[in-house]
């Protein structure tokens, strides 16, 4: 019995250890190294062949130089801040669009809900890259959107949308919308309809009952959705690369550049470690709110 209990705990912990902690320690270690044109392209390299002295030498070679470098060059701060801004704004718009969709789904006839759910999930069945490439086709100068707007006569010059931050927002909101809709839908669907009837019974009109009952009670879903969007968007790299323009500055792109273009694995690792630490804050907040929610439901 005891053995089984330990085994149950062991599985998730070893999973965490193997797939998160070990790689993370490697990245931290790399971030404390110096870049060098070698195989692998950094120094010191950890080996056990030189015995104890080798390990001591290894640790004495590590330093925080790369972090100091990050702090001194405003590029990185600007990239972090710009990512933060893009993540916040796109989370906001995803919520703005996602909430009404989730609300509509939750209030649809029960026999329609699986179909609606399917429509939301359906895009996941196509490759993410293909969907982003199609957005390039839609938003480009000669793309469908411009052609349509020109055709109905709203504009007489094609709009430049592709390769601007607007395109990045469109791409992010489009891609992450299901992550917002699904948790909100889950919380709205759970909502006991008699609570709304009670609110109306006690004198609320429809909008009051929405803001006083529906909204607070779907808060958990909204929070979950916001974190599910915000956290990955902060490190997003593909969408700004494909849809963004020269002005789009995101930390994911910088990370790529440091790793591949500069071959500076140590600085790239430092950027990644800082990004992870930044993400820890919302992740911890998210965990807390989840826990509070669980307690409230008991």
């Amino acid at each position: 019995m005891n053995f089984r209990k330990y085994l149950l705990i062991l599985i998730p912990y070893s999973w965490l250890l193997l797939l998160f902690l070990v790689p993370f320690i490697i990245v931290v270690k790399m971030s404390l190294s110096d870049t060098e044109m070698a195989i692998p392209p950094y120094y010191p390299y950890f080996t056990l062949s030189e015995g104890w002295q080798g390990i001591v030498n290894f640790f004495s070679e590590l330093d925080f130089e790369n972090y100091i470098f990050l702090a001194e060059d405003n590029l990185y701060w600007k990239a972090y801040l710009s990512s933060l801004k893009i993540a916040l704004i796109s989370t906001f718009f995803t919520l703005l669009i996602g909430y009404p969709i989730a609300y509509g789904m939750a209030n649809a006839q029960p026999e329609w809900r699986p179909t609606l759910m399917m429509i939301i999930i359906l895009p996941f069945w196509t490759s993410f890259l293909i969907r982003i490439y199609s957005w390039m086709g839609i938003l480009s100068q000669e793309g469908f959107l411009n052609q349509f707007l020109l055709w109905i006569g709203i504009i007489d010059q094609p709009l430049t949308i592709l390769n601007t931050n607007v395109a990045v927002y469109i791409g992010i909101v489009y891609t992450y919308l299901p992550f917002m809709i699904l948790p909100i839908y889950a919380s709205l669907e759970k909502l006991d309809i008699s609570l709304l009837e009670a609110a109306i019974d006690l004198g609320c009109n429809r909008s009051q009952s929405f803001w006083l009952i529906t909204m607070p009670l779907s808060k958990a879903g909204v929070i979950a959705g916001c974190f599910l969007v915000f956290i990955p968007v902060l490190g997003e790299f593909v969408i700004p690369d494909l849809l963004g323009g020269a002005d789009t500055l995101m930390i994911g792109t910088i990370l790529w550049q440091e790793f591949f273009a500069n071959r500076d694995w140590p600085v790239a690792s430092a950027v990644a470690v800082v990004l992870l630490l930044l993400l820890m804050i919302p992740i911890i907040l998210f965990q807390r709110s989840e826990q509070k929610q669980r307690e409230a439901e008991q």
Partner: peptide, 19 residues
């Protein structure tokens, strides 16, 4: 070279993003 590469990349980022 390694050091020049960093100068060039930094310059390039600055050129691209204005930062």
């Amino acid at each position: 070279g390694s050091k020049e590469q960093r100068t060039v990349t930094r310059l390039w980022t600055k050129i691209k993003s204005g930062t």
